[in-house]
Amino acid sequence: MPEDHEKCDRFIAALTPLCPPPGTVRTVRWAAAEEALGTALPTDYKRLVETYGGGVFAGTIWLLEPDCPDPMYDLVAQTAERDEILADLWAAGEKKPVEIEEGGVRLVPWGYVEGAGHFLYWLVRPGAEPEEWTIVLNEGRGPLWEAHPASCSQFLLDVVAGTSTSYYFAGIDDMVDPEDRYRFMPTSRFPA
């Protein structure tokens, strides 16, 4: 696991000069959040939240955080809401992505894309360590899914740096206002 910690530190260290963190963040009660979710969370995600807090990267990707006063940006509240929404979609006949057809697999959202409605999830497989989870992106207004074998910080770094392999972020410069391109705006700065 030390190698995993070094990788996440490396991605966060590369992200912070491109997209400077706010300086102060809320304290997160990690044990309570993990208990509410019924799973441990990736160390990478915890370090990202401890560095930035919740908020929006490059004017487009919202990082959810536990204990956020606004349920729209709260990891635990959004997990419950997304579970319900996805269950309704699948009950109505929308096809599940093949990655979650196997038993015991669940999705936990960690971010979403402003305006488009895309959600970023961890693919949580039984027996898999949080650092082994795959990121899956669900198209906000359609049935398409994309898988990325990356951590949160690596995914965000790739988007901010303009090196993402995601179809949805290939043209980031066309999607984002130039003044927002390398900015992180914490949730605490938005009116509740």
Rank of each mutant, 00 (worst) to 15 (best):
I135E: 02
C152M: 06
K46M: 14
R183N: 08
P42N: 03
C8Q: 06
D177T: 07
E131A: 14
I85M: 15
P191T: 07
R189E: 15
W90T: 03
E34R: 03
R82M: 14
V108W: 04
C68Y: 04
P178M: 00
E6W: 01
E129D: 15
L75R: 02
L48D: 13
V105L: 04
D173A: 02
Y45G: 10
P143H: 01
T134I: 05
A128W: 05
T165A: 12
L64H: 06
P97V: 04
M1I: 12
C152Y: 02
V176M: 04
G59D: 12
T163L: 02
P2F: 01
A147H: 11
Y45C: 07
T60P: 05
S166I: 09
V25C: 08
T163A: 10
D44A: 01
T24D: 15
D83P: 03
D173T: 07
A150C: 06
D83C: 06
E179M: 08
W62I: 09
A33T: 12
E114D: 11
G162F: 01
G59I: 00
I12R: 04
G93R: 05
T27C: 10
P149R: 01
E99K: 05
E65T: 10
G162E: 08
D4N: 13
V108F: 01
F119C: 12
L107F: 02
N138V: 04
G55H: 02
P130R: 02
S188F: 02
L107R: 05
E65M: 06
D83S: 10
S153I: 00
P21Y: 02
A150T: 11
P186V: 03
L107Q: 09
R10D: 15
C152F: 00
G38L: 12
R26N: 11
R10C: 12
W133A: 00
V113A: 04
V76Y: 04
H5K: 07
R82I: 07
N138W: 00
P97K: 05
K95M: 11
Q154R: 12
L157H: 12
Y73C: 13
I12Q: 07
V56D: 08
Q154V: 04
C8I: 09
G55V: 01
G127N: 13
T79Y: 05
